[in-house]
Design a protein around this nucleic acid. Structure first.
Lengths: 323, 323
DNA sequence: GTGACGAATGGGAGCGCTCCCACGACGAGC
DNA sequence: GCTCGTCGTGGGAGCGCTCCCATTCGTCAC
């Protein structure tokens, strides 16, 4: 029994006789044989694993339903292709050594490709990976203008539709609780909102503005900031549902009723929207589909195919009770 | 320049002259050399990576703060040892092929060891991994009695202290909203609670009992079930904070005031405890420390050292407003 | 019966690295 | 001046697999 035949059986090649196949399988059982992934990877130059890197604190990764949906979409598609998804956490707070370890893991051909989620502006990772020849796909554009493979939601259009809805329902004193401005999603949602405000002849400096980091806590702070700075708005767009939840709390504490006194729109259309009172009007983004598409595009890159540089998926407003 | 010298430089061996070292480093830069992890792993029989497997739906993984804390503890310790942590999701709903892919990934020496979290009774993974010779550490005991390396919190003591507290504050009509009974944590918390009830001369069939799966939704259901079945309890122990939050909502809707009419104790001491009104009394378990210890023990197993079969970490009651 | 062709099989080569042994150079001790 | 250690270095061997080529065998057409 040659090694060639055994290898063929284990890899499902059709050019093996029935008797040889069963003999190999029997031997595998008897010897409790486990193939060695390293040796296989060494010659095939493939590991059949893909890393998803989330550059975010553990709290946010595990707090945001966003990641759950993205992982589901990614995992499904990868599973269909027989690849294993592994999650690598690269928390910004981590020490130098840990970051180094993670970097080596990603570049040293442990994985066939890398998916990057939740990128912040100065993140060196996309640059580094591309320069090392590791196929990479970003979810959400990195800040740099270098050509990259990116899958993103239409944050601009989403921000725009949120504010358009507020305006269309008679709100005139607007406030935007924007997300982190070192992320494209944060910038785009804000830009879209301001666009729509301008279109509605709402002068830019008449729009109250405060910033957060997508977390509920930051939404509370931003809302409080806006209330402290001037007359209360009658329409608020928060860059994430969590921020909207924080804002809702602060509005209520300030004696303002939603939606009677203030219309409130969030972003993400996450499950929490249905748990607030009133239920939260929010911009839906197809996160699972984005994840799936990211995987799809990465698979194509790994196979060496040409892929579109940037794919943008549509968002849409889901109207509920809060605006 | 021999391969041996280059290898020595890259691995930080002291037996290299300064000139040779800098020559190698220069060459590495010029050639954009990236070491091949597979080749290295093939000869060293080490990958310097460890997998954390969470057998749970994406929603729960990303919904429960428990996992965030565990991952933090694990990641820290592994980082200190220069190992990379990768998260592998094995959702029960996944198809056969995906489960197979994940299994191969774990057994085929892609990783040096495996950490198992949130184990359910019939999970074949611990068995399989041990039989394949993969060092494994479980967080929370699996149901089977086979000798295994386990790190766990004192769920029994925790459940006991929760009910003791209810009793000590004058509650007599008790209800337990138990967790999943196919997990040791679920069984142990319930057993501890019933122990304490018995010690307080509270007959077992006088304790109202309902089951959930640690989720908020299941807490709501379980609480509603208890209220429907008989006279309302004046002391409720929920097996998780999320379940307690669900119960709190149902109690309120039923017109029962917490803590005036009903004392409520949760389990986990997670951040949500501080966001409820009143704040939630809860059993604290040192999750990050458990994670760290799991990593520590796994590292020892990988090194071939003897390790304790089971380590149990203490829990403690944190009294807040709800009981 | 002979030739030709395809299918199944065995095994050499080599993937890129680390381990380890052997070798040369150099300084110290007698 | 010779020997003996020590330190740095070069390179053979081999990790366990897949790829591919050569070989064998069986089958069919003529």
């Amino acid at each position: 029994m040659g090694r060639g035949t055994a290898s063929r059986v284990l890899n499902g090649s059709p050019h093996v006789s029935l008797s040889a196949r069963s003999a190999v399988l029997a031997a595998v059982r008897d010897l409790a044989y486990v193939p060695n992934a390293a040796a296989r990877a060494l010659v095939r130059r493939r590991t059949d694993a893909v890393a998803l890197v989330v550059t975010e604190s553990d709290e946010r990764i595990f707090g945001e339903p966003y990641f759950a949906a993205a992982v589901r979409g990614i995992g499904r598609r990868l599973g269909e292709a027989g690849l294993q998804l592994v999650l690598v956490m690269a928390r910004p707070g981590g020490d130098e050594g840990a970051a180094q370890t993670a970097q080596s893991f990603l570049t040293d051909q442990h994985v066939d490709g890398v998916l990057l989620l939740s990128l912040h502006a100065e993140d060196p990772l996309p640059e580094l990976l591309e320069s090392r020849g590791v196929p990479t796909v970003c979810g959400g554009s990195p800040a740099t203008t270098r050509p990259r493979t990116v899958v993103d939601a239409d944050n601009l259009g989403g921000g725009r539709s949120a504010v358009q809805h507020l305006v269309a329902t008679g709100r005139r004193r607007l406030a935007v609780l924007a997300g982190p401005q070192d992320m494209s999603s944060g910038r785009d949602r804000l830009a879209g909102a301001l666009d729509a405000a301008a279109e509605a002849r709402c002068p830019r400096d008449a729009v109250a503005l405060a910033y957060g980091d997508y977390s509920e806590e930051s939404g509370r702070r931003a809302m409080a900031e806006v209330l402290a700075a001037g007359p209360p708005p009658d329409g608020v767009f928060a860059a994430s549902d969590l921020m909207a939840v924080g804002a809702l709390r602060v509005l209520r504490e300030a004696g303002l009723r939603v939606p009677h006194d203030v219309g409130l729109v969030g972003f993400d259309d996450s499950p929490v929207c249905r748990h607030t009172d009133p239920e939260l009007t929010s911009v839906h983004q197809p996160v699972a589909r984005m994840g799936r598409l990211m995987a799809e595009v990465l698979l194509a890159r790994i196979a060496g195919d040409d892929v579109p540089t940037e794919t943008v998926l549509p968002t849409r407003l889901v109207v509920r009770g809060s605006a």
